[in-house]
Design a protein around this nucleic acid. Sequence first.
RNA 1: GGCCCCGUAGCUCAGUGGAUAGAGCAACCGCCUCCUAAGCGGUAGGUCGGAGGUUCGAAUCCUCCCGGGGUCGCCA
Length: 599
Amino acid sequence: MTLTDPVVNPAARHRMADMNLFSELHHLVIGSLNDMVAEGALPDGLDFANVAVEPPRDPAHGDMATNAAMVLAKPAGLKPRDIAAGLADKLAADPRIAVAEVAGPGFLNLRLEPAAWHRVVAAALTAGAGFGASRMGQGRKVNVEYVSANPTGPLHVGHTRGAVFGDALASLLDFAGYAVTREYYINDGGAQVDVLARSVYLRYLEALGQQVAFEDGTYPGDYLIPVGEALAEEVGARWVDQPESVWLAEIRDFATMKMMDMIRADLAVLGVEMDVFYSEKSLYGTGRIEEALSELEEQGLIYTGVLEPPKGKTPEDWEPREQTLFRSTAHGDDVDRPIRKSDGSWTYFAPDIAYHYDKIDRGFDELIDVFGADHGGYVKRMKAAVSALSNGRVPLDVKLCQLVKLYKNGAPFKMSKRAGTFVTLRDVVEQVGPDVTRFVMLTRKNDAPLDFDFDKVLEQSKDNPVFYVQYAHARVCSVLRKAAAAGIAVDDAGLAAQDLTGLAHEAEIALAKKIGEWPRLVEIAARHHEPHRVAFYLYELASELHALWNRGNDDPSLRFLQEDAPETSRTKIALIRATAVVISAGLGILGVTPVEEMR
RNA sequence: GGCCCCGUAGCUCAGUGGAUAGAGCAACCGCCUCCUAAGCGGUAGGUCGGAGGUUCGAAUCCUCCCGGGGUCGCCA
């Protein structure tokens, strides 16, 4: 996926209003390069796609750096430093740029005028929660499928991570300009809901006073007791001593409905709200599965055949078997995959194909599936199916969430259904709250395992990133309250209009620069489908604020409230209020509420 | 054995094809008559698992190898 398109794009002017300094300067650089082409300083027909404007790793190299000269040197047949020098002359004429100097092998380092950073602060105050929102997605329709837990019991910790990840990713994409649908696929069509029904039947008998035994192959969980009771209340004793054929279908529907009510409530506790719950069962008997498969059949991708045994390790009960197969290898999979069981019924893969076909049919431009890491082996065949069904038009990105390891006071906390130490989503949220749960779940990349310590996540110290970020926001609010009490106006509109030329100290500019990174970070995180980047950025932003705050200890002129100097105070308050605006926006994407005080 | 993910400071982890690879913890040295010290500054700590390759430039892309985890035809 490429971010933007080239060169003289009329939309470029509008992007200026986004106040993404990086993309602004990128367009400036590209424009200058075009000028150089027009003047004959560069040959025609150069590809500027790899020209980047980025913050250098070492701040000593300035505020921005571009690799333009090094990328273009070879195709242009010129020395990188010569191109850089020519480009530097052009860029130096821009009012935002204080210094443009050639460095190293041909980097062009740019130092910006403080006013450029002041504009960032004002833009944040003006845009408020919308600061950093991007048009990158151009309204493209994205479907994010997540959680999709079997409707057979309460959500557990693993689901919690997927729920938070998927939800934050959806918010991030929304913020980046996509039209997002949050979706949950209910696996209510397979054998596991029959098991659920039998388990509920036992609880039903129990509710009617019978002694029952839970054998293997049933769910013994207490959460089914009220379901059995509710069923007994509704139908009375009429299914006692009746064969399964009489009650199975009805109890299955009843139980699935109850489970989904519970799951919805669990998600609500976490603050997750789906747009669509899509039932697997609704695909059966309606021709939807057949429709999807006939689409594949027309492409010659369905055949009857015998699979080779897995290479290396052959299962003991392996025997050659003829089955209906999907030629997923034609779309990048390693082996073809069965879509029918030997009894003629569908494998789980068949309705999944139909489900994704339906998503494509609903007009989504991109699909994202969030799965647990144990579904890794499923990725290639799903991508193959989507590729085939959409003729390669719709990309599917599958994000795998690794395990969550639980700790209590530094000691591993083993989960066991039998020992009753099964930790549910609700357990976690009730113990530490939705905000902490959500933030902590995003303090690791999705494909890295996550340690979750019930005690450490509640610790109020800088070791706890949740607290650290919240504290930064609270500190700003504290200053605003004090300022208001001193009669200083601190409304955002007024602060946005404040003259900021007084913000000149390097520690103040450093904070403004961090704020300026926000729009760029949003786009990078969205492009990678990685919401954890938002959490890490917020930590860095909070760190800049805490640093500046403490500089006030040594240097009173850096304190935000300056006695008898309300204008100076307002200037400094504009900076930290802009910081709070970004923290608030970032936390909003993560689904975390910013706190105003922490006492 | 095939496929997927991971391997970066003593520990836990960030890192967008860019310059001398970062943060937190732990260790050591400092900072509160002052907006929340629930915080901040500094010192020290690295063959980015290994070897090739692509590139002007690789922790990042490709190949192979080593180590850890996941997964592997009628469970979803």
